[in-house]
Design a protein around this nucleic acid. Structure first.
Ligand SMILES: [Mn+2]
Ligand SMILES: [Mn+2]
Ligand SMILES: [Zn+2]
Ligand SMILES: [Zn+2]
Lengths: 146, 146
DNA sequence: GAGTTTGTTGCAAATGATTCTCAAATGAAA
DNA sequence: TTTCATTTGAGAATCATTTGCAACAAACTC
């Protein structure tokens, strides 16, 4: 069994839940995908295996709680996610114009955040640093059209 | 005319739009409110003046673009906002359990972010640092119930 | 000023992501 | 095998947000 599957099973058992075929398939798909994904995109990948979209929506919160995926950016009214295990934390820069998503390292900020968390006695589950604006391409074309 | 009204008017004119009574009323309400608000909460405040919820929804993106408000945390499927002018940037810590929102200073991180933006040639509109987890109250009660 | 263009608004209807209902299926345990 | 809680697919329901539209209004044009 793969690393993330072990972790998910352990999490589920702790809650009295089972690692069912559907849940295993959803987990696998989430880790197959190496880009951001939303519920529907993930479902597209596995609907051939008779896994319903409802179950995808039911499983996503479990994966979040288990710390296996994180919510990244909300685009077009849809929540997007990415898998975490083995990926360092990063910030998301979202271009309002072309909707490009750029990722940068977060480790520089992490220590400052952890320190603050200690002071607040806050138990961190997810850190999300999102910066919106215009990417260099769109900033330039904005200048051109003026 | 108040500071934020001048700024909004200037922004609108630049886009060939007008500072109408409805828009002015919405802006005013956004700056009257000294907590986070969602579209409906803002509308409650001004519906007596015959401003429709649709117009609130139409105006919110304008205020965002004008840099007068920012999107903060999404709770219960609703987007929340806060006014910006005169308020220093801050991070939002959201308790998953009691949904409390704690705010902390962001200025320590700001310089690191600005520096990164320069490197990326990214034109920043909004910075949003959201941290989810358990506040100290809920962390404690989780221990109790075990 | 009358007519024209362009942006605005309230209202009601539409949209669409997410959640819920429910009856059938599954599965661990006894 | 019987039991009993959990899970699931399918479809219906929910509900924040968006949109179409007809009436308005201010700004121009002549
Ligand atoms: Mn990412
Ligand atoms: Mn705030
Ligand atoms: Zn761009
Ligand atoms: Zn709490």
């Amino acid at each position: 069994m793969i690393d993330h599957e072990v972790q998910f099973k352990r999490f589920l058992q702790k809650q009295g839940l089972k690692l069912t075929p559907s849940r295993a398939r959803i987990l696998e798909a989430a880790f197959t995908m190496h880009e951001h994904f939303d519920a529907e995109k993930l479902h597209d990948l596995i609907k051939a295996d008779n896994v319903s979209l409802a179950t995808v929506y039911r499983t996503l919160p479990l994966l979040l709680e288990a710390g296996l995926i994180s919510r990244t950016v909300r685009i077009g009214g849809r929540d997007r996610f990415e898998h975490i295990l083995g990926h360092p934390r990063h910030a998301h820069w979202l271009c309002e114009n072309c909707q490009a998503v750029i990722e940068t390292d977060l480790s520089a900020l992490q220590s400052a955040i952890t320190k603050e968390a200690k002071a607040l006695k806050f138990d961190i589950q997810q850190i999300s640093l999102n910066i919106t604006g215009l990417c260099w391409k769109c900033k330039d074309s904005a200048n051109d059209s003026q």
